[in-house]
Amino acid sequence: MHARATVHIVDDDDSVRRALGRILTAHGHMVSTFGSAQAFLEEADLDAGPACVLLDLMMPGMDGLMLQRVLQRRVPVIFLSGHGDVTRAVQAMQAGAIEFLEKPVSDTDLLAAVEKGCVCAADLFARERELRILREKIDRLTPREREVLTWVVTGIRNKQVASELGTVEKTIKVHRAHVMQKLEVDSLPALVRIADRMGLCAARREPPWPRPGPRMG
Rank of each mutant, 00 (worst) to 15 (best):
D13C: 07
L41P: 08
Q68M: 11
A44K: 01
F125G: 05
H8W: 03
D85K: 01
L134C: 11
R205W: 02
G213H: 07
F125C: 07
V90A: 14
L141F: 06
L165R: 01
I9A: 02
R157T: 15
I156L: 09
L110M: 13
L141P: 08
P104E: 13
D13M: 03
H83G: 02
E43M: 09
A97P: 05
D196G: 07
T171G: 00
I98S: 06
P50Q: 08
V161Y: 02
G96Y: 04
V153Y: 06
E99W: 05
I98A: 08
R129F: 03
Q72H: 11
G84W: 00
T167F: 00
D196H: 09
R215I: 10
D13I: 08
K170I: 10
R22I: 10
I138C: 00
L65E: 09
L200I: 12
K170R: 12
D109I: 06
A113S: 14
S106I: 11
K170L: 06
R157K: 15
T150H: 01
L200Y: 10
D14L: 08
V185L: 14
A126L: 11
A113Y: 03
M59H: 01
R22E: 15
V114W: 07
R127S: 15
V174T: 14
P214Y: 01
A195W: 02
R144I: 11
R132I: 08
I9W: 00
S36H: 06
E115R: 06
D56A: 08
V174W: 02
P60E: 12
V90T: 14
R204D: 13
S15C: 02
G213D: 11
I23Y: 00
V77W: 02
H178T: 13
L80K: 00
T167S: 09
A39E: 15
S163E: 15
C120R: 10
K116G: 07
D63H: 05
E115V: 04
D85V: 00
A89C: 13
A92K: 05
G21I: 03
R176D: 10
T87P: 03
R73I: 05
V7C: 08
A51W: 01
V161C: 05
L131T: 15
V185H: 04
E115L: 05
L55E: 09
V148T: 12
D63N: 15
M93K: 08
V161F: 01
C120V: 09
Q160T: 13
T154S: 11
E184Y: 00
A121H: 02
R17T: 13
V16D: 07
A3C: 10
Q72R: 09
R129W: 02
R22N: 11
R4L: 13
L55P: 08
D13T: 10
L20A: 13
S36F: 08
D63K: 00
T87V: 10
A92H: 01
A126K: 11
L65P: 10
D13A: 14
R215G: 14
S163F: 04
A190P: 05
A89S: 13
L24F: 03
W151P: 04
D11V: 06
A203I: 10
R73D: 15
L200A: 07
A202G: 04
